[in-house]
Design a protein around this nucleic acid. Structure first.
Length: 105
DNA sequence: GACCTGACGGTAC
DNA sequence: GGTACCGCCAGGT
């Protein structure tokens, strides 16, 4: 249970600066391909920890979780990491996508 | 203890 | 190509 959350945090912490990943990629890496919701749910608590949850977006690159961050913290942090935005709250996922499945195997 | 909701994803229509 | 519905897992009501 909690260990599952720890795994999510561990993966998110491994996201390189200037790169973003998707809930589905993390979920699949953890063995729960259809548990993308759980990943986001876990990140909800991650926002209160030292986890860079702002680097995790949905498969479309949209900052669906920005509502859980104070103000525009999520967008501002991504901009500081030179993340390209295709929209006010949507990153260029195809350009900055980072799949743990491809990096760690 | 059952039902509903939630930072999503994929398939079906 | 866009919209709709269902599936996943966990937690709260």
């Amino acid at each position: 249970m909690d260990d599952y959350y720890q795994r999510v945090y561990k993966v998110v912490e491994q996201i390189p600066v200037g790169r973003v990943t998707t809930y589905g990629s993390i979920a699949r890496y953890l063995g729960i391909a259809s548990g993308a919701r759980m990943v986001g749910y876990a990140l909800n608590q991650a926002a209160e920890t030292n986890i860079p949850a702002h680097r995790v977006v949905n498969r479309n690159g949209e900052l669906t979780g920005r509502s859980h961050f104070p103000d525009d913290t999520m967008r501002e942090r991504l901009e500081q990491e030179n993340i390209r935005f295709v929209d006010e709250f949507q990153v260029d996922i195809e350009r900055h996508l980072w799949d743990p499945n491809e990096e760690i195997e």
